[in-house]
Design a protein around this nucleic acid. Structure first.
Lengths: 231, 231
DNA sequence: TCCCGTTGTGCTACCAATGACACAACGAGA
DNA sequence: TCTCGTTGTGTCATTGGTAGCACAACGGGA
């Protein structure tokens, strides 16, 4: 069954939260130079738009410098704070949509150890360390491993007693290489019936000489793999 | 200024989307064995709850097996599909909240090259490859680098012409080590006035002998650093 | 055959967010 | 002093989602 994963990003402060709708309003003000023109082009009512700005400013501080009267009747422009908020919102959305869109592989396994948030999980592909939130009855867990968190390297150069903080290592062989334009999706067989997806740049594909059958080591940080308890 | 980053996770299919509210309803049905008891304990109306289930099932397929009449009057229980949906939702939430909570560092810089989504950005800390969405007027970009995507390694063992797909490398020295219980937040000075945050396990801190002043190499994948264009 | 608690369905009422509209206040420039 | 387009403020209407309620349908067991 095919799902689409979606999200709403919000930025909160005090008891107001900035939503996508608010961001659109601020952007329109920035574009048109007045609340009036902004609400008009958005097909929204001025009165409500103005009210909303006041509400937001009670939580965040000055966002819109407004002037009435004068030549042209006045106008409004965004404060530096508002611009910072918009940038922050863009970044947040970019990260969320990264998650919503990126391929991921799910590993199920048994929790054999639990130290705070850090769990050791036995999976079909080997034992993996991951962050698992709840720790009440730790029997099993489903780990989700995002393709952009997996780094690939040649087996020749990959010491066992490692000097890196990426301590989850799974050996395998490349199953498929799906070249997008600047990025490629590589799937790696790490056990019978278990394969990982890794998102790497095409230049990395070439540097590592990745092709069907190439032996590789997939490594990923414990702190980058999150899981939820099951059963 | 201190913000809180929030989100709503949703799973869509067709033209219905499963929200957190729906998840709560399904969970309550699973707990109590009937829609009636579920809506009652949630303080919601039966009629609306039942309607909502029908709406969801039009998009997703059978979620709640309902039986009326019989001993006890009947009852309801979740289908396997519903359970799968709930698991999927849990995983998605876990990933989103990981993003919302995790420390991150922002690098601003000039875009010097743009190949599809992959941009090369000159920052104060060095040149970095990252995924940047829009590519209309590529002047500057703000890259956000999540602490859980940064891996640390000792400089001794880190070949220049690398055999790994993590190609962004920044050398620096440890500024602070903030030990949480199983995970530690390490900040690394990589240039004047620029420091990165890395989230690693405490055992990695010990293995690498990280302490204030320790020279380290911070590396991260281009596909794990996302940016938004500015100006 | 009756009893019971559930599902299924339809109606009204309510609430919060929003739009629609009216009108005063403003202030630079003609 | 007048004009003009904007901000600021208030009132009323509309809308979408929900609760509240009533009542029929169901079917296993007493």
């Amino acid at each position: 069954m095919e799902f689409s994963t979606e999200f709403d990003a919000r930025i909160g402060r005090g008891d107001v939260t900035l939503t996508e709708r608010d961001v659109a309003l601020l952007r329109a003000i920035d574009d048109h130079g007045s609340i009036n023109a902004a609400t008009a082009t958005l097909g929204r009512s001025y009165s409500r738009g103005q009210q909303r700005i006041v509400e937001l400013e009670e939580g965040f501080g000055d966002l819109v410098a407004r002037k009435r009267g004068g030549s042209g009747g006045g106008g409004s422009h965004l404060t530096d704070l508002a611009r910072e908020l918009l940038n922050r919102y863009d970044q947040l959305s970019a990260e969320f949509s990264g998650i919503a869109e990126t391929e991921e592989t799910v590993l199920s396994g048994q929790v054999v150890d639990h130290d705070g948030e850090l769990a050791t999980v036995e999976t079909a592909a080997g034992t993996v360390r991951a962050l698992v939130h709840d720790d009440g009855t730790d029997t099993g867990a489903r780990l989700t491993l995002r393709a952009d968190a997996v780094t690939l390297q040649s087996p020749s150069r990959s010491p066992e007693g490692d000097r890196t903080s990426a301590r989850n290592r799974l050996e395998g062989t490349v199953r498929t290489v799906d070249r997008g334009e600047p990025v490629a999706l590589v799937t790696v067989d790490v056990a019978d019936e278990v394969s990982l997806a890794a998102l790497v740049t095409v230049t990395s594909v070439e540097k590592l000489g990745l092709d069907r059958g190439t032996p590789v080591v997939a490594s990923f940080k414990a702190t980058a793999t999150r899981g939820v308890p099951v059963e």
